[in-house]
Design a protein around this nucleic acid. Structure first.
Lengths: 347, 347
DNA sequence: TTGAAAGCGATACCAA
DNA sequence: TTGGTATCGCTTTCAA
């Protein structure tokens, strides 16, 4: 019984060694033919190696390559919640750009728990990813912040690249979302439409994104003579939006003309709450959101919001981490107020 | 200048070797203390190693572990489109279950291109993932099907596990979605509500999911005396739904009482098209979808659909691949018709 | 150009 | 129990 007899039922994947033997060349030559950078390999040998690889259905072991080369082809992405359109759109951008660079994306969800986030970063560091992208929103004054930062610093000092998607330029590179300016511009536009009396339904205090949007909105109102009469702070999710709005209604809307939701999923939840209370969003009380997720075109009435090009944000986050620091566009992402029927002109 | 002098500014991550030296034990002992399965290590040594690891901020190199152990802790997930809620919900389930098993998920998007899918499978095979989960829908009679199957067979024969999310039990393990039965049940319920004249807006012929839902729906109608008078087959996406519905309206609705969309994102697009045409969904023409993505509770009127527990499907897909074949629940996922206001009782 | 051999960072067998 | 060392699959010097 020869080696060939068992070859078809071998249980382990073909190794480069197998390919080299099959092609009758050395390991080094096989390596150079298949993966080598500057290929200085006799064409005939090269062909033999390629044929052997095809015959054996060879697929290079990325782990082994990583160990030998000292670097991986992996990008790690951390989001709060994969099923949330805000994050899934961004993730789609990251994956698309990674694909262009022939990089592989590993994805994890913090579930909005900063301790989990820290754990995940530690675990993912074991992968030695080329890049770590942190998109879950920051928590102001969180006890885990320092440890997280230390962990990321360590990662960087080992040659890893870090990119945040964030509202502020912190100690790390970040794709900056100008939440404040966006919300302020929105507020001005709403004032321009004739609204004066507002409420806000937004996430818990400390969630940076929520805080900045609220601050911006408030600033815009003050500049224009509007008043922010009520604020509720449920969870930063669709159900949070529903609950927050319900609470507002139960306590009495009391002249509130427009409710600003901290993000679009909350706004969508809020609209359902309004409807379930027997009122009509846009008519009885106007609603505005933030993000411009795809869904908001399809709710009734379509939602006024601040557009963030989420897919592009994801792509930029990866570019930011990959490119030379000076070749990188660090300017804040362009946001844009999109007025729709959920905020009709008043009077 | 001693070794210690540069230690803090070392640029490479600490290795197990470093830890062992720092702790004054052998490589083997360090390995056993940190990652070993059956730890038979002197407690004092163990503590020394742990301390050294902490001091050096050691994080085991997963690639090196993978090559030494001959197996990874990776799960590869293939979806059609990460930003589509159908897939992102499923992905969330996979990631959650993977997290419980301390597995890492790498994610890729086929963008509904079977050739890309094949390429991705080839690339991902290089990772030697423990599991590959294929969730992008199958195409009947696609020229790449055979190559894909061969690739997956090879992966399996190398010890990898494959799990499909699929409508039919094929040659691989699959979490089965009973699209046919679900659509049929939906049709019966709609007949029960008094509807008789239907149209369908669904994906291109050959998309298995679309075909099966359509077939099931048709069967349910026939059993109940309804007629499927028109079928349009745009893209299997939100915009496809919008376009398809627009086409239907332009050609003249002509007595059509209800439009069945092949999935919820299409249904949501269709509802917007109805509204943009000056009609009212649910009133002028009823709409039903399939999947029960979160959004459909928040559109107006809320959408009648067939519920698939998408998160659970994701979790089950991973379990299916991980568990012993006989410990696994291969029964089709439970689907359920959810009647909402988009299909009010007629007459 | 080619091949032998020394790593890469871990695991695990085998003596001691 | 502990430590020495072969090994995993691949890359990359270094001679030839």
């Amino acid at each position: 019984m020869t080696d060939d007899a068992v070859e078809t039922r071998r249980t382990a994947p073909a190794t480069l060694h197998d390919v080299a033997r099959e092609a009758g060349v050395s390991l080094a030559t096989a390596s150079r033919s298949l993966n080598g950078s500057t290929r200085k390999v006799n064409e005939e040998y090269r062909q033999r190696v390629l044929a052997a690889a095809a015959k054996l259905n060879y697929s290079p072991n990325l782990s082994a390559q990583a160990v030998a080369r000292g670097s991986t082809t992996t990008v790690a992405l951390l989001v709060a919640d994969i099923a949330d359109p805000y994050f899934s759109q961004m993730a789609a951008g990251v994956v698309r750009e990674a694909d262009r660079e022939r990089l592989i994306v590993t994805m994890a969800a913090t579930e909005r728990d900063t301790e989990r986030e820290l754990d995940l970063v530690r675990t993912l560091r074991g992968q030695r990813p080329r890049v770590m992208i942190l998109a879950a929103s920051r928590r102001e004054g969180d006890p885990n912040n320092d440890a997280l930062e230390a962990e990321l610093r360590a990662f960087e000092s080992n040659g890893g690249r870090v990119a945040f998607v964030s509202s502020a330029a912190g100690e790390f590179h970040a794709v900056q979302l100008d939440n404040r300016a966006g919300a302020e511009a929105l507020a001005r536009e709403l004032i321009g439409l004739g609204y004066r009396r507002f409420a806000a339904v937004t996430g818990a205090e400390g969630i940076r994104t929520a805080d900045e949007r609220l601050a911006g909105f408030r600033a815009g109102l003050e500049a224009g003579g509007g008043t922010l009469e009520r604020i509720v702070r449920p969870a930063f999710t669709r159900d949070g939006g529903y609950e927050g709005m319900t609470q507002l209604i139960e306590e009495g809307l009391d002249g509130i003309e427009l409710v600003f939701a901290g993000n679009d999923v909350m706004a969508v939840g809020a609209m359902s709450a309004i409807r379930d209370a027997g009122l009509t969003p846009g008519t009885d009380v106007a609603v505005a959101g933030f993000d411009d997720i795809p869904t908001v075109r399809d709710v009734t009435p379509p939602l006024t919001t601040v557009r963030i090009p989420l897919e592009e944000v994801g792509r930029r986050a990866l570019r930011l981490a990959l490119d030379e620091p000076d070749a990188v566009d660090e300017s804040p992402v362009h946001t844009e107020v999109v007025l729709r029927e959920s905020t009709p002109r008043r009077g």
